[in-house]
């Protein structure tokens, strides 16, 4: 679908790519050891074999082993959550839908808490794997409850709400009955999202998932466009509604579960970014999805920079920053939705 847009698609991609590159370099530079942008850039080009500049070994190690992987994972999380938001808003025909409406993050939290506090599968199962298992359990729960999406958008959202309530209750139950103060604090921090501790292995897994997920979503972009006027209209235009819906729900659940299991639950990115991008380049998915991925990445890296520079010596949970930006946007959407009716 092509029509007049506020700004061009290509322009948006170029601008966000440039900002993303700078933001990642900045994100790598800040921290307990401040590193100038130039050094960051040189270190990266050194490793790519493009230059051979002298850089201190410690600086190089901090950049390469700790901060770059973290910054890239941050970007990928933003991209993934934004893609999921765009797809879910279309499939559920609800402008307030975002990755967590499927109850996936609540499930992930329960899984993580079960590992931390109850020590289920102690040692053999890591926190991430527990979170992932929890997220997929929640997704299956929602899929069954909403009759594999056949019950329509409203039923899926209700099933997601039910799943979120159930799993949050389970999490709270486990924490209050079995946890001590320190564990509760750890979990609280994890629930609000943190990029601390992510390294190259996380990056490698995430980039594979995001690339596959984004490709599947883009492959279905015409089908997503056809959902504009609802399920029946999509079906009458030749879309296998149930199949497309279950495939795309599974993809979004997989992306969300992977992200939540690595960095905790980070809200509002999947909600705000797709709306902003749609406003800029229009609703056609073949452009919307790649653009959301890039803008989501930029948004998340910037939010991460803010979360680490607001208070000296301390990192705010990233979820607090995205919520502080996201809630006003959310309110604006709600306000506008009310006017439209």
């Amino acid at each position: 679908m092509i029509s007049k847009k506020t700004i061009g698609f290509e322009l948006l991609l170029v601008i966000s790519f440039v900002i993303l590159a700078f933001a990642i370099a900045m994100a790598v530079g800040i921290g307990e050891m401040r590193i100038p942008l130039r050094t960051v850039a040189l270190s990266i080009t050194n490793h790519m074999g493009l230059s051979n500049a002298e850089i201190g070994r410690i600086q190089d190690s901090v950049i390469w082993n700790l901060r770059l992987s973290r910054a890239l994972v941050t970007a990928l999380c933003g991209a993934g959550l934004a893609i999921c938001g765009a797809v879910l808003q279309t499939l559920l025909r609800n402008s307030l839908a975002e990755p967590y409406v499927l109850g996936v993050s609540a499930g992930a939290s329960t899984g993580a808490v079960a590992v931390i506090i109850l020590g289920i599968g102690a040692g053999a199962v890591s926190l991430s794997m527990g979170a992932f298992a929890g997220a997929m359990t929640a997704f299956v729960f929602v899929a069954v409850l909403s009759n594999s999406g056949r019950g329509g958008p409203d039923r899926t959202i209700l099933a997601g709400v039910a799943a979120a309530q159930l799993f949050n209750a389970l999490t709270a139950y486990i924490v209050t009955t079995s946890g001590n103060a320190q564990q509760a604090r750890d979990i609280m921090f994890w629930l609000l999202g943190s990029f601390g501790g992510v390294r190259w292995p996380e990056f490698q897994l995430l980039i594979v998932i995001i690339i596959i997920g984004l490709s599947i979503c883009i492959w279905h972009s015409q089908a997503l466009d056809a959902f504009t006027f609802g399920d029946d209209a999509a079906a009458s235009m030749g879309i296998a509604v149930e199949r497309v819906r279950i495939i795309l729900f599974a993809v979004t659940a997989l992306i969300t579960a992977t992200i939540v299991s690595m960095v905790g639950s980070i809200g509002f990115v999947g909600l705000v970014v797709p709306h902003a991008v749609r406003f800029l380049i229009g609703p056609g998915h073949i452009r919307l999805l790649p653009a959301c991925a890039l803008v989501g990445a930029v948004f998340m890296v910037l939010a991460d920079i803010v979360s680490r520079s607001v208070m000296a010596q301390q990192t705010l949970p990233i979820g607090i920053v995205t919520a502080l930006v996201g809630v006003p946007c959310f309110s604006l959407i709600l306000y506008r939705a009310r006017q439209a009716v």
């Binding site: 029509s3 007049k4 025909r93 504009t228 006027f229 235009m237 609703p283 939705a337």
Partner: peptide
């Protein structure tokens, strides 16, 4: 058959 998405008439017809 309604939508809340803002799109041009031409884009709607293109869905066909």
């Amino acid at each position: 058959a309604a939508t809340e998405i803002n799109m041009a008439v031409e884009d709607v017809v293109r869905l066909g």
